[in-house]
Amino acid sequence: KTELCRTFSESGRCRYGAKCQFAHG
């Protein structure tokens, strides 16, 4: 995971959680 998850960085939450293909910091 190298690319940051935009949804997580903007809203602080992501519906994919740990399964998200993007990094959550």
Rank of each mutant, 00 (worst) to 15 (best):
G25N: 11
G17F: 00
R6Q: 11
T7D: 12
S11M: 14
Q21C: 04
H24G: 03
L4F: 11
A18Y: 02
Q21R: 06
T7L: 05
E3Q: 06
T7K: 12
Q21P: 13
G25C: 06
A23T: 09
H24W: 00
T7V: 04
R15T: 15
F8D: 14
A18E: 15
L4N: 08
K1H: 02
G25Y: 10
H24S: 02
R13I: 11
R15L: 12
E10I: 08
Y16K: 00
C5M: 02
L4Y: 14
T7E: 15
S9L: 08
C20M: 01
K19W: 01
S11L: 11
Y16E: 10
S11W: 04
H24K: 02
R15C: 09
Y16M: 13
G25E: 13
K19G: 13
R15A: 14
G25K: 03
A18S: 04
K19F: 08
K19Y: 05
F22E: 12
F22L: 10
E10Y: 01
Q21I: 12
T2I: 14
C20F: 00
T2G: 11
F22M: 12
A18L: 03
K1N: 14
C14H: 04
T2V: 10
A18V: 05
F8H: 15
T2C: 02
T2N: 14
R15D: 14
G17Y: 00
E10L: 03
S11C: 07
C5K: 06
G25M: 08
A18F: 01
A23H: 10
R6P: 13
G17K: 01
T2D: 13
Q21L: 06
Y16G: 09
E3I: 04
S11T: 15
R13W: 14
E10P: 04
S11G: 13
K1Y: 09
S11Q: 15
G17V: 01
A23Y: 01
C5P: 03
C20N: 00
C14M: 06
F8L: 08
K1Q: 01
R15K: 12
H24C: 07
G12Q: 08
A23G: 08
C14I: 03
F8Y: 10
A18R: 03
F22V: 08
E10T: 14
R15F: 13
S9V: 03
R13K: 15
R15Q: 14
G17T: 01
E3W: 00
H24T: 00
Y16A: 12
Q21E: 13
E3C: 10
F22P: 07
R13M: 15
R15G: 11
H24V: 02
T2R: 06
E10A: 13
F22C: 11
C5T: 07
